[in-house]
Design a binder for these strands. Sequence first.
DNA 1: CAGCGACGTTAATGACCGTTAACTCGCTCC
DNA 2: GGAGCGAGTTAACGGTCATTAACGTCGCTG
Lengths: 203, 203
Amino acid sequence: MSTTSAALTRREQILKEAARLFAERGFHGVGVDEIGAAVGISGPGLYRHFAGKDAMLAELLVGISGRLLTGGKRRAAEARSGGDAAEALLDSLIEGHIDFALDDRPLITLHDRELDRLRDSDRKLVRQLQRQYVELWVEVVRDVYPAMVEPEARATVHAVFGLLNSTPHLSRPGPLPGRNAMARLLHRLARGAFAAAASNGAA
Amino acid sequence: MSTTSAALTRREQILKEAARLFAERGFHGVGVDEIGAAVGISGPGLYRHFAGKDAMLAELLVGISGRLLTGGKRRAAEARSGGDAAEALLDSLIEGHIDFALDDRPLITLHDRELDRLRDSDRKLVRQLQRQYVELWVEVVRDVYPAMVEPEARATVHAVFGLLNSTPHLSRPGPLPGRNAMARLLHRLARGAFAAAASNGAA
DNA sequence: CAGCGACGTTAATGACCGTTAACTCGCTCC
DNA sequence: GGAGCGAGTTAACGGTCATTAACGTCGCTG
């Protein structure tokens, strides 16, 4: 019961700070001494908790992909009821992804930025999880819009991920909508994109 | 007349290969020897053409942002005619951005991945160009959808950029639409997202 | 043909960085 | 109360890498 409590374990502290630093300056751009300093210990002390710098990145990326997929599967399972199930499930998937993108920006950033820095086996695992997540969406989308052909649906899902994951890229300047307004806006945009994808443009 | 000819200058070769390598493995992930090898010369020979590795990245990023902005401005200028000008201009901007995203994937990738690796002055310049480009879009979008408030329009434009720039992330596996089909699909998705943003969700 | 400038080459330098070694300290549990 | 262990510490090693130095070689020009 310790790992899920409010107070973070040392390991979790490290992972959280490492995620932030990796997202800010890239995997190769941050040294182990910096990660250590961010949690109040220094440099090689990290090796009591992780096998190496690579292991931290691997755990982060596998964790993200896994959590996304698990959340998606849970929502799909919960949706086995009602008649308009597909519509509701799509909304649920969108909502879940938005929550993730808005609340875990560093992880989202890492997710499609540092995948290539992984050992082959870890990268394969992450990619497999990502693929399953995409296929889950594709099925639901084709359930809602039966007219869509599969490659189109897959490309659309990727594009919508790009749309939903765009928030980390704009943090800095001027006036932006607040968190809830942003969540509603992104949801609307995603639905609009799917609807537009479905209206076949065979012109 | 040399820099725009079909045969690339040595400098341009280097930039092109550097862009590809940076996009594949990150700025810190590729060494100058690799870049040199990619154009048939070795390591330090690059310093006859560039002040350093940083200078290559800077030139790439400034070049991308500049070309995007220039293209956008040109399209805006060309659109000063006709009655439904705003609609057509938005379509033109979307089309231009899609062409760029589909034809210069490595540059698009670099564009929002390695900005933080720049010297302060270069980063400021790039960000300024990016901001101008965004504001150009925002104006056009608000012209087409006068009901949209500015922060909403700006967030939407960012999100649509995320959508249009999503193509580099999916190159590898299964069946995907071909280039032209993809361009049409992305265009439809973008228009759908804008339309959805405009339909105010004050529910 | 002297010479110079553009373009490369290899070798050396110096910094940085991930990882390991060796050691310390404080707590817990027989 | 001391054996053992979890969690840190600093110092050192080894490798990588951007950058510079020193040197060579064309090809053009006067």
